[in-house]
Computed example of a mutant assay.
Amino acid sequence: MQHFSPESPTPRERGFVMPPEWAEHAATWMSWPADDDLWFGHLAGVRGDYAELVRTIARFEPVHLLVRDEESEADARGRLMGADVTYHRIPLDDSWIRDSGPIFVRDGRGRVSLVNWRFNAWGGKFEWENDDRIPEHVAAHLGLPHWDRPEVLEGGGIEVNGAGVGLTTRSCLLTDTRNPGLTEADYAALLRDTLGIERLLWLDGGLENDHTDGHIDTITRFVDERTIVTSVAEDETDPNFAVMAKNLAELREMTDPNGERFRIVELPLPATRLEGAEGRLPPTYANFYIGNGFVVVPLYGDPNDERALEVLRPLFLDREVIGLQSRAIIEGGGSFHCLTQQQPAGTLWQGE
């Protein structure tokens, strides 16, 4: 299996770009929750919500599930009996494969490869050594030649529209615990060469007490090439209010490479403030996951649950929009998009 270094021809030079999430998938990759301490004593409830998420996704496309030990595999198999799931036993630290897993790329001939970025648990906040090896396991299983990068990058930190535009946040990418010294211009060049992002758009920040330092996928998402859904807070006393309002105003002025403005759709944040073991939790409806014929949206038993679904359903007329409970999962700081990583449909690249 070939490993391409930063000095090799880049993915972009070989014609590879990151497809949008709504492009057809071959499968979804996930990691089974295993550590009760990381879930602050909520593991049993988390596994219940997580199993329902896996079962739902597996109705529409195959799921590759990473399990870290015998107990995890037995628990998962017991809960997921009959579902279209393939199990992979590897060491794991945590479950957030959106950030620790590979980012897949595809070329104009439909060939699929991946980029292996470094993962350091959002700037060294938790253990990460095992999770940093996940992309290599995935590449080995698929037999994929791929690119190894020295930079830290988490999948939840970027959004793409499939037409050369990317979204991210300064609060995340510009931290000194990820890639010290990299500027906005440096990231623009890096993401152009590796993921095919020709125009990188920046928002300032994300949700209060988000341990990812404000990932874009918790607040603002592309749902097609021209439409952006962005979170808004309605309580002016909420610390999230001003940040989300500034994001909204900036998004309304942003343009694509042709100078055209995007369609901006407001998505309410949950109305109820949730507290966890380490302070305020960051529940959001924007952390939905788009798959083959479906969209799964996290719900929290909140008054705004149904409102959020009403906003999203008209944006996905060709997909079933499914609300699932994520009240236990949010205790760990993330939700459905954070727990999933799509493998695009296509022929597995053999290198050249």
Rank of each mutant, 00 (worst) to 15 (best):
A233Y: 04
A233H: 01
A233S: 13
A233N: 00
E234H: 15
E234I: 00
D235L: 07
D235G: 08
D235P: 01
D235E: 13
E236W: 09
T237H: 11
T237N: 09
T237Q: 11
D238R: 09
P239F: 11
P239N: 06
P239T: 12
N240S: 12
N240K: 11
N240W: 13
F241K: 11
F241M: 04
F241P: 00
A242E: 15
V243M: 11
M244F: 06
M244I: 00
M244A: 14
A245H: 15
N247F: 02
N247R: 11
N247A: 13
N247G: 12
N247H: 11
L248K: 06
L248E: 03
L248A: 07
A249N: 04
E250S: 13
L251Y: 10
R252M: 08
R252F: 07
R252P: 02
R252C: 13
E253S: 12
E253H: 10
E253D: 10
M254L: 14
M254D: 06
M254E: 07
T255V: 15
T255L: 07
T255E: 14
D256W: 10
D256I: 06
D256V: 08
P257N: 08
P257Q: 09
P257F: 09
P257W: 11
N258Q: 15
G259Y: 10
E260W: 09
E260V: 05
E260F: 11
R261N: 14
R261S: 14
R261L: 02
F262Q: 04
F262I: 01
F262S: 02
F262L: 04
F262W: 11
R263I: 06
R263A: 08
I264N: 04
V265Y: 13
V265G: 05
V265I: 15
V265N: 12
E266K: 14
E266C: 05
L267Y: 03
L267M: 08
L267H: 05
P268W: 09
P268Y: 14
L269G: 01
L269Q: 14
L269N: 03
P270F: 05
A271I: 00
A271Y: 00
T272F: 02
R273W: 05
L274C: 00
L274A: 09
E275G: 12
E275N: 13
E275Y: 13
G276F: 12
G276I: 06
E278W: 07
E278I: 12
G279I: 01
R280F: 03
R280E: 13
R280C: 02
L281W: 10
P282F: 10
P282G: 09
P282V: 07
P282T: 10
P283S: 04
P283K: 09
T284E: 03
T284C: 04
T284N: 07
T284H: 06
Y285C: 01
Y285P: 01
Y285Q: 01
A286I: 02
N287H: 07
N287A: 06
N287Q: 09
F288L: 14
Y289F: 14
Y289P: 00
I290K: 03
G291E: 06
G291K: 08
G293Q: 02
G293C: 05
F294S: 04
F294R: 04
F294W: 04
V295K: 02
V295M: 06
V295Y: 09
P298C: 10
P298H: 08
L299F: 07
Y300W: 09
Y300Q: 03
G301L: 07
G301Q: 08
G301R: 10
D302K: 11
D302R: 12
D302P: 02
P303W: 08
